[in-house]
Computed example of a mutant assay.
Amino acid sequence: MGTDRDRLDGRRALVTGGSKSSGRAVVERLREMGADVYTTARTMPGGYERPDRFIAADTSTAGGTDAVVARLAEDGPLDVLVHVVGGASTPPGGFAAITDEQWLVELNLNLLGAVRLDRALLPAMVEAGSGAIVHVTSIQRELPLYDASLAYAAAKAALRTYSKGRANEVAPRGVRVNAVSPGGIETEAYEEFVDRIAGGNGLTRDDAKQQIVDSLGGVPLGRFAHPEEIADLVGFLVSDRATAIVGAEYVIDGGTVPTV
């Protein structure tokens, strides 16, 4: 049975990358919990049900970040900030295939976008003495796939380190920062990744999927996570049920990462 500790009534939230897949699931989950949720992505989906709460912007750029901050400033400070946006777009072929430009694309998308938004939005949380931030990292920070997502993995590793440092800095001022580290998720981005692996290596899509699973050492659960499962974990971390959790990284990967 739910309690007030499960609710986010009266709180304002922003979810980046909230137009599809895990981001969309997080938006829906936080709204179910009672939050007033804004989301940002490069393009608003057709028929989006809350256009007044959608900010079309590319948060991998400084200009995109400025646009998000300006729009939010019209309505007041945030209570919850969830960085979901991310992805890999480098070609297969290992480290030698990644150009300087592609490294910068991955770093801006998977690391610096979160850094810029935090820098702009977190001070108001500190002033208010409360707030919750979640950075979505990846198990690739620990199990990098070198063929087509090495730059992505490196950026997510940097995001985890940044998240921990930020958590230690602002926890004494009432703001909690944590991270969620998914393994494989059954999303549109995953299917695009499969296509890149298949096309770059002359494989069928089934063989490409198996190569991805094998490169991770298998998935004991027998499947990748669903976006809704990621959203449930995020919802818990930003709720009052997690008020003593600071600087943590929660792995949600079906047992992929070996632990002892």
Rank of each mutant, 00 (worst) to 15 (best):
P144D: 08
N178M: 06
V134I: 15
G129A: 07
G129K: 09
L109M: 05
W103D: 07
I139N: 01
I133M: 11
I139Q: 04
M125L: 15
E191A: 15
A148R: 11
L143I: 14
I185K: 02
L143F: 10
S130D: 01
A154G: 09
T137W: 06
L109E: 00
R141C: 07
E169M: 14
G129R: 05
A155F: 05
A179S: 15
L143M: 14
V105I: 09
A120Y: 05
R160P: 01
L145A: 10
L104W: 09
S130K: 10
K164V: 14
P182W: 07
D118L: 07
G129I: 06
D118V: 02
E186I: 09
A114W: 00
L122P: 06
D100F: 07
A124G: 10
G184Q: 01
Y162V: 01
L159A: 04
E186G: 13
I133E: 02
T161G: 12
P123E: 11
E188K: 02
E191R: 15
L145C: 03
L104T: 07
G183H: 08
G113C: 02
S130A: 13
A171E: 08
E106C: 00
I133H: 01
D118K: 00
P172F: 10
A167L: 10
R116W: 05
G183D: 06
K164Q: 15
A128H: 13
E186S: 12
N110K: 06
A120K: 09
A114I: 05
L107T: 12
A167S: 14
V175F: 07
L145K: 06
A158M: 09
L150G: 08
R116Q: 11
G184N: 06
E101G: 13
V126C: 12
E186N: 13
N110E: 10
E127P: 02
S130R: 15
V177H: 08
E169I: 08
L143A: 06
L107G: 07
